[in-house]
Design a protein around this nucleic acid. Structure first.
Lengths: 285, 285
DNA sequence: TATAGGTGTTTGTATTTCACAAACCATCGA
DNA sequence: TCGATGGTTTGTGAAATACAAACACCTATA
């Protein structure tokens, strides 16, 4: 349980008191409301007293926040414990559907999983972390139960095939920022933990057009990833297939998989560019 | 687009000024923050000025709210338009995973879709509306593209097989409340729109143990549903399979499907009761 | 190249609204 | 019956927010 929220919610909040001039004012009350949302997630639901101790706020304050969130339908009360409601799921599904990469890429990813029989992922980047937009399990996929049911979290970009494919196509300064912000924590002994090594790897990925995760996240698991960029060269996200190293490494099969992945990424790109006739794609922030 | 949010976000907010004594205080600032979230959903992203007109708030106020939501990572800014972020999806996935019915029922539902080849749904109730927790498309499933990709929304309970199975096992006064609150709008000419008809139907459903949606939501589509209750008799949600009337109505096949659906619901119930050894299940609100 | 009109952003300040503590009210078990 | 442990309500001072107006920036157009 300790690992769960280590890097997830980001660093400690800075309330308005200590705000440097020139940066936007933020509303304490709103921030607290989201502190409560986070707390409810971290505690898997809780009562008023528990939350008031956890957040160091008076009981009545917590009660008022919960009542408000409840009236907004983002929180439900079961007996005396408050929980986050399915409203979050509904809004979440809306947001996902808004995402062009998901909308266009979903069915292609399903085809990819079907064709290869392996496990396929569709990911994008937000706030310097990777978010899985969709996963499909192919016929041969192993550990699929673990992978499908694993809780969906934002995770580091530097140790997954999807993540590295994205990093390779972000502007260098953005990658620098991400590394500064989150570091390069290791998951296995193969994880890239050195900054220069990472930049070399990203260079390689750019040259050959696909990324490889060689047991860098989970021992025994290899993944092949490819970026999806729009016509302006901005990376929208990436896809990957993954499976046990033993199978994935067999050379003909390996080549064939690379082919399939890169090809699928390409098809998605084409379809996206057909939809997005001529909109601008400004940079995220 | 008009239909989209007709009944979704609920009725107009009542701020604290006009609060009847004895009901909890609610925080204006928090409510406004969620007004912004709603607005961003309704407008599919928007700029400061647009939002300030839409919500009748001053530009600077909107700007401050957006800045706060952004610092909480629930909103991103692309160029000059603000959008809801994937954070909602992540929290939503967490909430879904917290749901016992989803956690236990998911794989059983997949089996059901596989066995029958039809389209299968797993749904629950919240705030008097139905929420789909999961959907799987079987081999033979038709219109599956529409159904899978259809935007996930909370919808009325009275015209779906899953919804009616749930209603049939809620306390009468709760059903009364729901009907008072949302009415019985019709989707096709077969939709039940009369209160007494509905209660009779629910009685029938309770007696025979499954529900039927006979082109009440979509012309040409039939669905068979069954409730999932815990050992205390509280309904946790329901499942269904659906397909074209022509196929679904063939009598042997029909019987067989009913059998499969009821059976699956049963298996889920057993598994849930094994997990939830002896917790109380208080009533929602 | 200047200018008008459209953005998003910043600031000062009045005043609304929130935070706190303490009282209150259930429920449960000893 | 009593005490302990929750959640809920209320009055009031202190602090955070809402507003308007000024600002900076961009783009189109004269």
């Amino acid at each position: 349980m300790k690992y769960k929220h280590l890097y997830w919610w980001g660093r400690k909040r800075r309330y308005d008191g200590e705000r440097p001039t020139g940066s936007p004012r933020t509303l304490k009350t709103v921030s607290r409301a989201f502190d409560l949302v986070r707390a409810l997630e971290e505690l898997d639901g809780a009562g008023v007293t528990e939350l008031s101790e956890y957040l160091d706020l008076s009981k009545s304050v917590v009660y008022n926040y919960l009542s408000t969130l409840r009236s907004e339908k983002f929180v439900v009360k079961e007996g005396d414990t408050y929980r986050l409601s399915l409203q979050f799921l509904l809004v979440g599904e809306y947001v996902r559907y808004q995402n062009t990469l998901y909308r266009i890429g979903k069915s292609e990813l399903e085809d990819l999983a079907e064709k290869t029989g392996e496990f396929a992922h569709l990911a994008t980047e937000q706030h310097g972390l990777g978010v899985n937009l969709y996963k499909v399990s192919g016929e041969k996929a192993v550990g699929s139960d673990y992978q499908v049911n694993k809780l969906q979290r934002a995770d580091y970009l530097h140790f997954s095939a999807t993540g590295k494919a994205i990093l390779a196509h972000l502007p260098r300064e953005r990658v620098e920022w991400i590394v500064d912000r989150y570091g390069l924590p290791s998951k296995t002994e193969s994880t890239i933990t050195d900054r220069e090594d990472l930049f070399e790897e990203l260079e390689t990925i750019r040259e050959r057009g696909y990324s490889l995760n060689d047991e860098e996240e989970i021992t025994g698991l290899q993944a092949i990833g490819a970026p999806v960029t729009n016509r302006h060269g901005r990376v929208l996200g990436s896809i990957s297939v993954s499976g046990p190293v033993r199978r994935m490494k067999r050379s003909e099969y390996h080549e064939q998989l690379i082919e399939e992945v890169v090809n699928t990424a390409n098809v998605i790109e084409v379809n996206i560019n057909m939809e997005e006739t001529d909109d601008e794609f400004p940079t995220f922030s």
